[in-house]
């Protein structure tokens, strides 16, 4: 299993590189904003420094890149007939797909965790006038994680196709719709439940397709 995960990470190396560089830049920006240029006003309950810094990446780029990663993994596999080779070795379809999903989760964690940790640490070191409570921070990052996961699962589902246009269009159209839910419903339980249900449905359908498709 570890070999399969390692193989998936190597194939999607560019995505991990993008994540690592983005996280370095974002964490740097966060440190700068909180430590040097800190502001105390807030927007919809989120301190504006966090809002401005986190606003761009987690809500625009993370879901989009996560969906692209899922689609990339499946499209590459299908086009290059990777699974049809792998499945003839001492492995199974279940292990191959699990390795893909674990890789996707690792990628999302890699993009969300550093910012989450940096936020918590910095807010402790440089307390703001309006410090969000711990529960809010948990809800915030859980929602971001689940949003990324939902988009990633959608990418997996739509990527297992022979044509290129539909996956690309699907990602471009569906990702903003999924993300807009956060804007409408906020970081509450309802949003979390929706993302969990959406992710489960997408994963179950991908699983069923991958298990039964000719390789």
């Amino acid at each position: 299993m570890l070999t399969l995960i390692k193989r998936e990470i190597e194939d999607a190396a560019i995505f991990f590189l993008i994540a690592a560089i983005s996280m370095l830049i974002l964490t740097g920006m966060l440190v700068y904003r909180i430590a040097i240029g800190w502001e105390s006003n807030s927007v919809i309950g989120v301190p504006s420094v966090m809002y401005k810094t986190l606003g761009t990446f987690p809500f625009i780029f993370l879901p989009l890149i996560a969906a692209a990663l899922g689609a990339f993994q499946m499209k590459l596999d299908r086009d290059k007939k990777i699974s049809s080779f792998l499945v003839t070795l001492a492995t199974t379809r279940r292990q191959i797909l699990s390795a893909k999903i674990i890789t996707g989760i690792l990628w999302i964690l890699l993009t969300v965790l550093p910012i989450a940790v940096a936020d918590v640490v910095l807010l402790k070191v440089f307390p703001l006038a309006m410090v969000p409570d711990a529960g809010f921070l948990v809800r915030l990052f859980v929602t971001i994680f689940l949003c990324g996961l939902a988009c990633y699962s959608f990418g997996l589902l739509i990527g297992w196709r022979s044509e290129k246009l539909l996956p690309a269009l699907g990602i471009i159209l569906a990702t903003p719709i999924l993300v807009s839910l956060i804007v409408i419903k906020g970081f509450g339980l309802q949003t979390i439940i929706f993302f969990v249900l959406f992710t489960s449905a997408a994963i179950i359908r991908t699983w069923q397709k991958f298990m039964s498709s000719p390789l």
Binding site: K81, S84, F85, V87, T88, L89, A90, T91, T92, Q95
Partner: peptide, 15 residues
Amino acid sequence: AEIHGRIGYVAEGHN
């Protein structure tokens, strides 16, 4: 996976 590990396969076109 155990059974797959006991089977060697040379595919047509060497995929």
